[in-house]
């Protein structure tokens, strides 16, 4: 078995076979990226160039007026701050709530956990359009209407549904010996949660953080209804409203799409390193 163990780190088809697999992945990646490139291409065309050559031709030059017009028309800077504030707060708060819920359900295995989980999942199973009228009424009653905090609260609860489910599924397979060892070392449940469970679950928590941020960023319906004043609006709402008014030509639509997507892409690229920098159970510190 000497030869096998010598190549144990690189098994399976070697040589040209492995490049075939890589090539397949690269083709797939190109298919996934193509629509983005089309949008980017159109965002830097002049309207005249667009109507002459169509949406799929390569841009002849870099024309940034579409981007600038959109930026000024919607006060993009302010909208960006609102979106960052709302999505960032929701992402962090929803991760914390998910951890607390999942600790009770997945590790504590509280009585009737299946039904508790079903209740938490209702935040997602209920169609959002069904929530809009009642939430509007409640927000008016509590004086939270047209505040960013109202949207933060609503989406924290909505996003927690997924976090609670994913984390409690993952944690119900958590190695009992580790919990036992920590308990014998004198840690109480609160300490076990933050010093043992959370560090081990870090890759999954990063995934949740990224998902929550991006999902909240792209939410449209509830922010549209709740954030009526211009000062509180988010990027997605500004984008959707302008599109709905049909005041934009195709190049400006593309420009708005680029500005709408750029922050989430940047966020994903920054945070995607944390997705793999995992702590495996065998290497807890």
């Amino acid at each position: 078995m000497a030869t096998v163990s010598a190549t144990a780190r690189r098994p399976g088809p070697g040589g040209p076979g492995r490049y075939a697999v890589l090539l397949a992945y690269l083709v797939l990646a190109a298919v996934m990226l193509l629509p983005f490139l089309i949008v980017l291409g159109n965002a830097v065309k002049t309207p005249a160039e667009y109507s002459q050559n169509g949406p799929l031709a390569l841009p002849e030059g870099i024309y940034l007026d579409g981007l600038r017009d959109f930026w000024e028309r919607v006060d993009y800077g302010d909208k960006l701050l609102n979106s960052l504030l709302i999505s960032g707060s929701v992402a962090v708060l929803a991760v914390v709530l998910s951890v607390l819920n999942a600790y009770a359900l997945g590790i504590g295995r509280v009585k009737g956990r299946l039904w508790v989980l079903v209740l938490f999942l209702m935040a997602n199973t209920l169609p959002q359009e069904a929530l809009v009228y009642p939430l509007y009424f409640l927000a008016k009653q509590t004086g939270l209407y047209d505040t960013r905090i109202s949207v933060i609260i609503v989406f924290t609860v909505v996003q927690t549904a997924f976090g609670t489910y994913l984390l409690s599924s993952v944690l119900s397979g958590f190695p009992r010996e580790i919990l036992e060892a920590a308990r014998i070392d004198g840690a109480n449940r609160w300490q076990v949660l933050w010093r043992v469970v959370v560090p081990v679950s870090r890759p999954t928590l990063s995934v949740l953080l990224v998902f929550f941020f991006i999902w909240t960023w792209n939410e449209f319906l509830i922010p549209l209804v709740f954030l009526v004043s211009n000062d509180n609006q988010t990027v997605s709402v500004a984008l959707g409203v302008l599109q709905g008014q049909r005041l934009m030509d195709a190049t400006m639509t593309s420009a708005s799409a680029v500005l709408g997507v750029l922050p989430t892409v940047a966020f994903f690229l920054i945070f995607q390193r944390t997705l793999t920098r995992g702590v495996t159970v065998g290497a807890i510190k």
């Binding site: 935040a123 929530l131 927690t160």
Partner: peptide, 20 residues
């Protein structure tokens, strides 16, 4: 353990169960 469900549960009640 059930106590860990309290914050999430209260918010769920206000934002989802009552509107439902």
């Amino acid at each position: 353990y059930a106590l860990f469900l309290l914050p999430g549960g209260l918010l769920l009640l206000v934002v989802i169960i009552v509107p439902f």
